[in-house]
Design a protein around this nucleic acid. Sequence first.
DNA 1: CGGGCCATTGACTTAGGTCAATCTGCGTGG
DNA 2: CCACGCAGATTGACCTAAGTCAATGGCCCG
Lengths: 248, 248
Amino acid sequence: MMNPPLFDAACSACPIRHRAVCARCDAEEMAQLETIKSYRTFAAGDAILWRGEPLAFVASVVSGVASLSKTLEDGRTQMVGLLLPSDFIGRPGRDTIDFDVTATTDVVLCCFARKPFEALIEDTPHVAQRLMELALDELDAARDWMLLLGRKTAREKIATFLDMLARRSHLAATGDAAPTASALLDVPMTRDQIANYLGLTLETVSRQFSVLKRDGIIDQVDRRQVTVRDLSRLQQATGDDADGGVWS
Amino acid sequence: MMNPPLFDAACSACPIRHRAVCARCDAEEMAQLETIKSYRTFAAGDAILWRGEPLAFVASVVSGVASLSKTLEDGRTQMVGLLLPSDFIGRPGRDTIDFDVTATTDVVLCCFARKPFEALIEDTPHVAQRLMELALDELDAARDWMLLLGRKTAREKIATFLDMLARRSHLAATGDAAPTASALLDVPMTRDQIANYLGLTLETVSRQFSVLKRDGIIDQVDRRQVTVRDLSRLQQATGDDADGGVWS
DNA sequence: CGGGCCATTGACTTAGGTCAATCTGCGTGG
DNA sequence: CCACGCAGATTGACCTAAGTCAATGGCCCG
């Protein structure tokens, strides 16, 4: 269990101050946000929001990983989004959402009461501008994901997933866009969650991990850690165009 | 071939005036938009934009249907969006897009030069607000599509596709949300395009049309027209939750 | 009448799902 | 400290939905 960091009420000390929905806000707008915000924490596995339930808050992810998922009548489920720090939860202008939101790891949210937040969108331009950028970024990611779900093989899906984790951890560590060397990766989900993310079964996820290991592309340290032995072969295995801006 | 409607330069007469990116603009903002807009038309099958090419314009679809698609190294392709009248093309703040845009039917676009449009986003709140709404709507649609691509069977995919067409044509005809009776549907794409939309092969699309016909759920008038015989059985065949807000 | 272009249908293959057995590591309680 | 149990992961055997390859059919247009 993580030792939950304590968050100061002051936005100026916030780790996502310059990337979240408030990124473009000036001092006065920040002061307004400050009055309607509150922090909430969730343990790994907790439900954050249920589909269809009235939405009292919108929120930014401050730390941890949350996931969005949809379910068919007979219980098949598909993850339709992975929310990382600075990502936004909620749908200003609508009072329900159409998917479940779950804490994948322990999560801290910065919540804003919905009504005053919507008023802020009307009154101050910078919130709407930033929210538009965040929505367009998520739309790009969703489209990459549609290509993966519709057309990639199981092997390509796993390779894409690991390549994404490699890029992200490299980005977080160095601020640099493209990793070039091998790396030790943290896999923040169970096989079952990965399967729901990639549109596979957990058995297929497990088998493809084994295949990539047998091919010498990765090594499995333990169930939550993987080392990439050959990043360029991993990237070839994703099936993407060489110059593909995927996850760029 | 359609008899192309003539569009008046005046926004006040525009068929998408109240739904497009300009929906919330006041008279003064409209005047600004009016100075940077121009109409362009494309024939069915024409490329509108290529992935990666520098983006001089952003645009709204005025009439017709356009599609967004992505392609893997070896040529497999997946449609990642279907643009109908009032939908928006482009990515303010970035000078390329990461997918191809193609005219599925004959298309009329209302194009805005990108730089002045971006300036407008900075200066006037209503454009950014509306663009945020449009992006969030597309994100909802993309998430429904991810569920379809990742988890639905071929039969469910075709049923969902036909149900979507039924809802749309009913909505366009009556302004009403949910169709209840059978209807004659226009299928605006070839089997191959449908396959790329649904993450299937064209043979599987054809076979599933035949199965739904054998089951008495639909009738095929010709290759571009279908009558829905039993809408409630069609909706059951989509696999969605009964109260599912899909395509709502 | 002939030649494309879609669409349909059939025969066969295969990637990935299903079901089931086994393994591994970890926290709990004796 | 060890034994137990449980949750997650792996692996194998088998099955099936959908893909592949190939032949045929209908339709429009010159």
